[in-house]
Amino acid sequence: MEAVIKTEHLTKKFGTFVACSDLTFEVQKGEIFGFLGANGAGKTTAMRMLCGLSLPSSGQATIAGFDVYKQTEQIKKNIGYMSQKFSLYEDLTVAENIRFYAGIYGLSIRDIKDKTAELLDKLGMQAEAKKLVGQLPLGWKQKLAFSVSLAHSPKIVFLDEPTGGVDPVTRRQFWDLIYYAADAGVTVFVTTHYMDEAEYCNRVSIMVDGVIEALDSPKNLKQQYEAKTMEDVFYKLARKAKRAEI
């Protein structure tokens, strides 16, 4: 197995506040890696450092073999990102959004066409291709955003609470898309608050107050903490949190 995300003692401080402390972990190629933690535990900050959006205060990290300090532009070519905030253009149509993002990642006009057809087909959204994204229901938007983040065939995709506010059926469909991507060799790094989703991950880390408290497969974690579900594991760990929400 090859590690596509590698961090060593990765730390981010905002003034005296330590948002992420001493994060050390590895994520393997094709893995679905769940990144759990209560609100304010430091998940988003960690993810932003890995995507090259935020400069670490100390520690090391490489993404797809590239250094997060010096090679952020190479990292960006190899990753997809879907932020907590919905970030497609609501005043552009579905097809225009795909075209735009595929275009700035450097796909040729021909590839863009093929990719658009493929994505719409996979999502079953051919009929909506010319609809403004703003008119779509939230679940569809999220599935679209995920697909757009994969349009340039990245090695790793980072998903920051991709299913927040989405109904259970659509969430299920969303996870089908995640599995589909992972099967194709894409590494999926995902944060979530839904513990049923945590069960779907190959491995899960749980962050408490900026520190990774536990990291293992859901099965092993449940054994280790003598819990029936991931929800129980999460309660046992997250209860220790002292930090208020940021």
Binding site: L53, K76, K77, Y81, F86, Y89, Y101
Partner: peptide, 13 residues
């Protein structure tokens, strides 16, 4: 404000 800049900033543009 709407957050699309974040998405732009993770692209190699």
């Amino acid at each position: 404000e709407i957050g699309t800049i974040e998405q732009i900033n993770v692209t190699p543009i």
